Simulated scan of single mutants.
Amino acid sequence: MMQGCENPQIDPQSRRAPRVSYRMAEVAATLAEPGTLALFGFGDDAPASTDPRYLQVALQAFDAPAPMELWQVDAPVGCGSDGALRWSAGGGWLFASIELDEREHGGPVATARLAYERLHRFVATREARHVLRVWNYLGAINHGDGDAERYKHFCDGRATGMGDFFAEGFPAATAIGHHGDPHRLQVYLLACDQPGTRVENPRQVSAWRYPRQYGRTPPSFARAMALPAQDVLAISGTAAVVGHASAHQDDLDAQLEETLTNLEALLASAGMAAGFDTRSPLKAYVRHVADAPRVRAFLHSRLPGVPVLLLHGDICRSELLVEIDGWRYA
């Protein structure tokens, strides 16, 4: 049964992108602030809440206590839930999330299919039906060999479940392996009642055109998405990939350099000025705990003042040591 809180009137003229920030915050007080569309805590130590706008992400932060991630819009926000699916909406923007246990739904392929079927059916009922950005967090992402790898199973299930969900083109996206319950799948998205503009990286093969060596089903995402007002770029998970191949195996510093080169290429492709600033929050997903201090020092040196949330996560290719995604505000 669908349950919800207030259902506000949406101002069709309000299209300013959500403001994304990291802050040390108390959950209830932050959710009570006007315009709170979504709030994220990270890891097992994050507080719990039943509010549909809050998600306790399965990824552990390297900083303790960890800041929360906050999305805010310039409009009243309504929220609700439908079983495992939770949502909030305001100002023409929609947040939706779903968390499923693979043991209850027939394994990784079936669970990914169900997650995307449920999200597809729900978003199709909303005015904000243009999906711009998706995050996928799954356990044990690199376990299994060849086509039996869990990430490839996830891609198979996602493709089956999405149907014509992304008929107008793939959204920006991230897929990262968490170190919590290996059967836990979390998917959440940002959608709008207006479409965005997809951005590709000229240094990389588009993900949906990857050759067969990367699985039966290629990944389904754009490298970035310019949000409708064209004042914010939502950047997909970006790593040391050139063409379609992983670069600099076992060399963390070289992978970081290549990743920054790819990020700058995306900014140029989107027609944005080079560089990131204090209004451009990023996430850095680091495979090995021992690498976190080096990643932190590198990013502090190369991206001074840029808010970076450092998270323990496995990249979808086992040879990649770090991945970065986030937001770039014009």
Rank of each mutant, 00 (worst) to 15 (best):
A148M: 12
A112C: 03
H288K: 13
Y54N: 05
A268Q: 15
W93V: 00
R118V: 02
A172D: 05
V308G: 05
L266H: 10
L190F: 13
L185S: 01
L310R: 03
L267M: 06
P65Y: 00
N142S: 13
G4Y: 08
G144V: 07
D145V: 13
T30L: 12
V73Q: 11
M272Y: 13
P76G: 05
T36G: 10
G161C: 00
T160S: 13
A89N: 05
G90P: 05
Q60K: 15
A274C: 12
N201L: 07
P202G: 03
F276R: 02
A167R: 11
R126F: 11
E127K: 09
G139C: 05
T36V: 15
P211V: 06
D51C: 06
A240F: 00
H244V: 10
S318Q: 14
F166N: 08
A284P: 12
T217G: 06
E127N: 07
D51P: 03
D325K: 05
I98F: 07
G139N: 02
A89R: 13
V295H: 05
G326E: 03
V27P: 12
G180Y: 00
R296T: 05
I235T: 02
D291C: 02
D74L: 12
P293W: 08
R118N: 02
V109N: 10
T259R: 13
A270V: 00
A46D: 10
A48C: 11
F42P: 06
H105L: 07
R86I: 06
R209H: 15
E69A: 10
R223Y: 09
V308D: 06
P12H: 08
T217F: 09
M162A: 11
E33W: 03
A273Q: 15
P76W: 00
T217S: 15
P8I: 01
M272A: 05
A38I: 01
G106C: 05
H312E: 13
F170E: 06
Q186D: 10
E26P: 03
G41K: 02
V241C: 08
T160Y: 08
R16W: 08
G157V: 02
Q249G: 12
F122E: 04
R19L: 08
A226Y: 01
A297G: 02
L303I: 07
D156A: 14
D314P: 02
A140M: 01
T50G: 13
A75M: 06
P281Q: 02
D147R: 11
H288R: 14
Q13I: 04
V134W: 00
E117N: 02
R121Y: 07
A89F: 09
M225S: 11
P67D: 03
A32Q: 11
R129S: 15
A290M: 04
E33A: 15
A270E: 02
R15E: 13
D231Q: 13
